[in-house]
């Protein structure tokens, strides 16, 4: 039944893999397949982003980029896995803004400071939605009511660290925050009348708005979206919120700190070219996201500013017990 002869080559190939390649020099990099770790389950927005960029980056790197989902702990388990690997550039992290929340929430000790950004790809714009038959015509009406009757208006969130939870904190008024598991569940909760309003990334709501089943009260951003000028921007109708805006999820590619500079440079080159690929650009536009394309110091600054803003919002909103000040995160 078993033929040892046919097994030997397989064993050799495995042995070759086990032995591992000697540390690559930058000239040769990459000489084997890369692993892109996605710290969320397959099918989520980070996963889709990773699979889209991996497919175009392969052509640039002339190597396979294997997407591996390491879900759990709001993304901290996957981030930890990248930290546990050697900083040789063969393991990249395709992640989202969540890294900013781990330390204040006590989930993990990791933060953006432990990673070196290759590129920040795109950001998502949150929209505040309700049903078309709702009693609020504008976002001002809604905010007025939450101030008059605190804790009565139900906002669907994905927990305090999710988009909706943080936007509710930005709005600074008292909502009854009803937590759900995913953006999809949030939208259903509003459609089914189980909650009154919700904030989701535009992609999760766009089709419902088009079909007339949801209404956009405000785009949570400083300016109206070029593609949808008819929706009011929060920063324009209520300028007092401008100091907190823009706030929203973003997606990017990182490697472990300590990866040799020439390898980082090669990765930056490959991923920036991949991000400019028309196919990728189209996928970003189709997802109703805004391209960021930030690298180097710009990327670090963007993530730092975001981290500080988010950490303080979580602390001020009461969701986080650890003060950002104790972690050395300055208020900006």
């Amino acid at each position: 039944m078993y033929k040892p002869i046919s097994i030997l080559p397989a064993l050799f190939s495995i042995a070759a893999i086990m032995a591992g390649a000697a540390p690559a020099t930058a000239q040769e990099f990459p000489e084997r397949a890369l692993t892109a770790i996605v710290p969320f389950a397959p099918g989520g927005s980070t996963d889709i982003m990773a699979r889209s960029i991996a497919a175009v980056a392969e052509a640039q790197l002339k190597q396979n980029v294997i997407v591996k989902n390491v879900a759990g702990g709001n993304g901290s388990i996957g981030a930890k896995e990248v930290q546990d690997k050697r900083p040789d550039g063969y393991t990249v992290l395709v992640a989202a803004e969540n890294l900013a929340t781990y330390r204040v929430m006590g989930v993990s000790q990791l933060s953006f400071a432990d990673f070196e950004p290759i590129i920040l790809l795109a950001r998502e714009v949150p929209v505040l939605v309700t049903t078309p038959d709702s009693r609020w015509k504008t976002v001002n009406d809604l905010i007025k009511e939450t101030k008059e009757k605190p804790d009565q208006v139900k906002i669907a969130t994905t927990g305090p660290t999710g988009i909706s939870g943080i936007v509710a904190t930005i709005l600074g008024t008292k909502f009854n925050m009803v937590p759900f598991k995913s953006a999809g569940e949030i939208v259903t909760a509003v459609l089914g009348g189980h909650t009154d309003v919700a904030t989701v990334g535009l992609i999760a709501a766009a089709d419902y708005v088009k079909a007339g089943k949801l209404k956009v009260l405000a785009v949570v951003d400083g300016k109206a979206l070029p593609a949808h000028p008819e929706w009011p921007a929060l920063g324009q109708v209520m300028p007092e919120y401008n100091k907190q805006l823009p706030w929203g999820p973003f997606y990017g590619v990182w490697v472990k700190k300590g990866t040799p500079a020439p390898i980082v440079a090669k990765l930056k080159d490959a991923f920036s070219k991949a991000a400019a690929d028309p196919k990728f650009v189209e996928s970003v536009t189709k997802k109703e996201m805004l391209p960021l394309n930030l690298m180097g110091k710009d990327a670090v600054d963007y993530a730092d500013a975001f981290s500080s803003k988010t950490a303080w919002l979580l602390y001020d909103g009461g969701a986080a017990k650890t003060s950002p000040a104790d972690l050395g995160i300055a208020r900006r």
Partner: peptide, 23 residues
């Protein structure tokens, strides 16, 4: 010896090759 090596090699090739899991 033959069966142990065969079982391990067969299943590892199956898992590694087909499902992109590199041990």
């Amino acid at each position: 010896i033959v069966v142990s090596v065969a079982v391990v090699a067969l299943s590892m090739t199956l898992f590694a090759k087909v499902f992109y899991i590199v041990f």
